[in-house]
Design a binder for these strands. Structure first.
Ligand SMILES: [Zn+2]
Ligand SMILES: [Zn+2]
Ligand SMILES: [Zn+2]
Ligand SMILES: [Zn+2]
Lengths: 169, 169
DNA sequence: CATAACATGTTATAACATAACACTATCAGT
DNA sequence: ACTGATAGTGTTATGTTATAACATGTTATG
């Protein structure tokens, strides 16, 4: 497995930052492969392809965009294909859904359970998955008045620095 | 305007609690009327009806459910009717969208700008809009690494006490 | 009353998602 | 290897959510 490049002190993640994506991509594939192996799950060509499509550009993709990509790569491209694989990958935490965009994105922090939070630029539509703890979002209190929270959706929409600089020029 | 019944110390809001809904309903209509008056906006019969439909049961409703209700009340029930009015009411903060349900709900805390957070029971589909400050969610830091956050989506899905008690019987 | 703006109505279609069933591959136990 | 069970993929059809584009009506203003 390739060596990790840690970036301390940053709160947004690699999506808005430069990074060595070759390493990033390989690491991600490694991680998912190992996870599937350990859990005795099948990392089939279809599942691999969907994950690759998603992590390729760290971009949120709609199910139908994924289907097109699958079609181009010789897989079936009828809707259930994508939705089933996406559901599966989401169950295991390797893909998240961005509710505000009806789109799916590869997880940036796999291998440890987490409640993801997303920062979404409404101009360039780039999305960063941020770690709650680092982000200054203290999304505390999983228990609200005895309500048992099982899942959280946290999305922050706005404008990223690149886009806001571009606008003021 | 009807007198307010304040409930201190509670973290979930009226949806999961008993409350005098007659007063609640009238208050809500008063507030939206006053707001529209002050801002010189038209509180048309259609807009009023949509808001009434939503606040009637504090229940999240899909756009097409709202359309049905509109149809029953003699209004047109083609999709753009609902979506336009909902967009308008959302712009002014009287309605929120629950992304996890593709549904719309009347605001529980109008008259002051806020970033709503929602507690959603996946069994009974009741939804409570909680106040960030009271809920123990401190959803702090609107600025993440210079990203200018304009809007937040916070939804917590789980099981409410009523449903979880019912399940264990 | 002209006219600009806002609001509503209508038709068509786009975009997102699932149901139901058929077929194939993989794996365990015989 | 045969058998049945489970999991994965393929296919068709349909359901659900949302918007585009344009027509008509309504209201405020000069
Ligand atoms: Zn990368
Ligand atoms: Zn993640
Ligand atoms: Zn009420
Ligand atoms: Zn609200």
């Amino acid at each position: 497995m390739a060596k990790k490049k840690k970036r301390e002190g940053k709160t947004t993640s690699k999506i808005f930052d430069d990074h060595d994506h070759g390493i990033c991509f390989d690491d991600a594939i490694d991680q998912i492969e190992n996870y599937f192996l350990k859990k005795n799950l099948q990392f089939t060509p279809l599942r691999r392809k969907v994950f690759e499509i998603l992590i390729r550009d760290h971009k949120p993709l709609g199910a139908y965009e994924i289907l097109e990509a699958l079609g181009r790569d010789g897989f079936s491209s009828s809707p259930p294909i994508a939705y089933r694989v996406l559901d599966f990958l989401m169950e295991h935490g390797f893909v998240h859904k961005i509710q505000g965009l009806n789109a799916f994105i590869a997880c940036s922090h796999p291998n440890h359970s987490h409640s993801p939070a997303f920062v979404i630029c409404r101009k360039c539509e780039k999305v960063a998955e941020v770690d709650e703890k680092k982000s200054g979002i203290s999304f505390a209190s999983p228990n609200i008045d005895n309500f048992e929270v099982e899942k959280t959706t946290v999305e922050m929409t706005g404008v990223c620095t690149t886009c806001s600089r571009a606008a003021t020029i």
